[in-house]
């Protein structure tokens, strides 16, 4: 079902999904996104600055995220990003896809069954 909503969207790259997840928690500027990704993966995923902005550029073009004005810095404006509704839908679709995969993994006893 999720595939039919966004037929043009292949499984997301890990880095892209992490960025979408970071923004799902609220608007952030680039540097903060990088930090958030590091935190939510306990340091397992660390995005280089080039990779980070390259993905942010592509996500902006695809309108999964949007740049917003922010006033959290007095001297210079930082580029701050917000998840668009489209981006949110795609992140949800990806989460569902992964969830389905995890269910399969449980059914095959790769993971312990969830407690009821």
């Amino acid at each position: 079902m999720s595939r039919s909503e966004h037929p043009e969207t292949p499984p997301l790259s890990a880095a892209t999904f992490h960025i979408l997840l970071a923004l799902a928690g609220g608007d952030r500027h680039g540097y903060a996104i990088g930090k958030e990704v590091e935190e939510q993966t306990a340091g397992a995923v660390s995005l280089g600055p080039g990779t980070l902005y390259r993905i942010l550029k592509q996500l902006t073009i695809d309108a999964w995220i949007a740049e917003i004005d922010s006033a959290d810095d007095e001297h210079e404006r930082r580029r701050t990003y917000r998840l668009t509704s489209r981006g949110r839908a795609i992140a949800q679709a990806e989460a569902r896809r992964l969830d389905a995969l995890v269910s399969v993994a449980r059914a095959r006893r790769l993971l312990p069954a969830l407690a009821r």
Partner: peptide
């Protein structure tokens, strides 16, 4: 186009990190 958009962010992030 990439440089124009992100150079200052990249430099600042780099310095901060």
């Amino acid at each position: 186009d990439f440089r124009t958009a992100y150079a200052s962010s990249l430099e600042r992030d780099f310095a901060e990190e």
